[in-house]
Design a protein around this nucleic acid. Structure first.
Lengths: 118, 118
DNA sequence: CGGTATCCACGATGATACTG
DNA sequence: CAGTATCATCGTGGATACCG
């Protein structure tokens, strides 16, 4: 992965996108944010079981730098931060839908119900 | 990545698919095979500049184990091997198209020509 | 031509502890 | 609550040499 000044040069749009979603947990984070609309840090940690705080924080910073996640920090005590998808992030998620359908059909067992998301 | 008995369990189809295309050069290999239809080993090496023989061979073995690439070995001398996409692989490539469009638009500069593939 | 066999470097991730 | 700091680990990929 990387942050926004891309190392490139990219051969095509796909490896550029792969660089954005290349982190081990990134698509799960995007998925959680897409379903919930807005999440706090601890909530995300629970929604992505197994991820450590360090990696979650790092992934969120990269996704933010890539313009797909918005971070809103409320200066309160106790601290409160809300993460959400940007419009660009929502479009990325939509672009991932066909890939999810392929994975369900060809990697996981067949297609039990065509309306199950991802 | 991994070979066909998947480590899983996957949370959704997307991370299952990500595991198939997760290698550094895999989408480029799929792209090349999609454009050419069928490629020999040395041809692929030229079409994916920078990849080493070892990694190309490893990626091809994994893609084959995942059922997206077909390997046809002709018992001749000099040796000849042809790689091509399986129907499943072609569908995977089609599923990657929206992701490529997103990458072109949001990571690379705008959309100079809407007919350029990937 | 189409690979394998070794060895190695590096970056990404994991574990744990601590802080504003 | 929402992180940061530090260190250990592990897997992917790179370099090079060799083989049927």
């Amino acid at each position: 992965m990387a942050t926004v000044p891309r190392p490139g040069p990219y051969v095509c749009g796909i490896d550029a996108a792969m660089d954005v979603i290349g982190g081990k947990w990134k698509v799960l984070i995007l998925w959680a944010l897409d379903e919930r609309g807005s999440c706090r840090f601890g909530e995300l940690r629970r929604l992505v079981p197994g991820i450590t705080e360090k990696v979650l924080a790092a992934h969120l910073r990269e996704l933010e730098a890539d313009g797909v996640v918005h971070r809103e920090s409320y200066q309160e005590v106790p601290p409160r931060v809300e993460y959400s998808l940007t419009p660009t992030g929502a479009r990325l998620n939509a672009a991932l839908a066909p890939l999810g359908a392929w994975g369900r059909e060809h990697v996981l067992g067949g297609v039990p119900h065509p309306d199950a998301p991802r």
